[in-house]
Amino acid sequence: MIPENQTSSTDFILLGLFSSSHTSLVFFSSLFIIFILTVTENALLILLIRRDSRLHSPMYFLLSHLSFMDILHVSNIVPKVITNFLSGTRTISFASCGFQIFLYVTLLSGECILLAAMSYDRYVAICHPLRYAMLMSDSVSMLLAMGAWLVGTLHSIVHTAYVLHFPFCEPRVIDHYFCEIPALLKLSCVDTSHYEQGVDVSATIFLLIPFSMISVSYVKILHTSVKTLDAPGNTADADNIVNGKYVRME
């Protein structure tokens, strides 16, 4: 346990993932390597999309935003885990905890919306290839990406501000390796049952709506692909759709 004189009254204590054993050192090394690989691979993907003009299409534009969200996701959590392990402390300030929650919820919400937008892009490309340039223009792609960020940010602001206004009981020990809403609610000194129901409803909406859109999109894609393959004389068109030749029509 961290001595009291090392923490302020507003700090939280993260129990974390690792102890000081040699086994934990192996797991820590693996986590560090995976973190570096994740950041590097996503950064290279973004760089490749930006530099290769053949990849300047709505699908890859949205994919670059998804990769950027993945970089922020791991960077929001893993560096603090690494810092605490190397320094031998387990504390996190109130402001840092609030920022972790804000970024975590923003990225989770934004990724759900972005995945739905990417499924819509594939639906238009395969089911309406001749209208793709109009339905998925650069401005539409930008609106979809910015909408994912905006909705995710607004959703996160509401939850972050609400959860941080609760009073927290001592000791402020979080049985986790980063700050998240359910972990903080367990430390609250007041009844949070109504808010927890709101969190459940919110999470269900942000999962169910994108999941439904993705499912419908791919069902329609499958139906169109089967219908195209079964139609006589449309083999060449089917090959073009599969190979993505109708993805961008200028």
Rank of each mutant, 00 (worst) to 15 (best):
Y120Q: 05
L150Y: 01
L130V: 03
M69T: 10
R90M: 04
E170H: 13
A236W: 04
L48D: 08
L154Y: 11
N234H: 09
H65D: 06
V26R: 14
H155L: 03
F178Q: 11
T83D: 15
L66V: 02
G98F: 04
A203E: 13
S93G: 14
P79T: 04
A203P: 02
K80M: 14
T7A: 08
S8F: 00
L208C: 12
T153R: 03
A95V: 08
S19W: 04
T192I: 04
P167W: 07
S109F: 12
A231V: 01
P3S: 14
M59K: 12
I101N: 08
M136V: 04
A236C: 04
R122F: 00
L14K: 13
L184S: 11
E41D: 06
Y246S: 05
Y218G: 01
V226Q: 13
D200L: 13
F85A: 07
A95E: 15
A133P: 04
S188D: 11
D200E: 14
L63A: 06
T153A: 15
K80L: 15
S217F: 00
F28Q: 14
S53Q: 10
A238Q: 02
V105E: 10
P182G: 11
L72W: 11
S156N: 06
S93A: 05
M136Y: 01
N5G: 07
L143G: 10
I33L: 08
H155Y: 11
I33V: 12
V74K: 13
F28G: 10
G244R: 08
C112Q: 15
N5V: 09
L208A: 15
V105F: 01
I13S: 14
V216T: 05
S57V: 05
L130N: 12
F32V: 13
G198H: 02
L44N: 11
I71C: 02
I36E: 05
G98M: 09
S212C: 10
I181G: 07
K227A: 14
L154H: 08
S19I: 01
L154W: 07
S24M: 08
R50Y: 09
T224I: 06
E170G: 12
I46G: 01
S141I: 03
S67W: 00
L103R: 03
F35H: 13
M213A: 11
A231M: 02
L164H: 09
F12T: 04
T204F: 07
A231K: 04
L31V: 04
E111C: 14
S137K: 03
A125N: 03
A43K: 02
A125D: 06
H128Q: 15
S119F: 01
G88V: 06
V26M: 09
S215M: 13
L48F: 02
H159E: 12
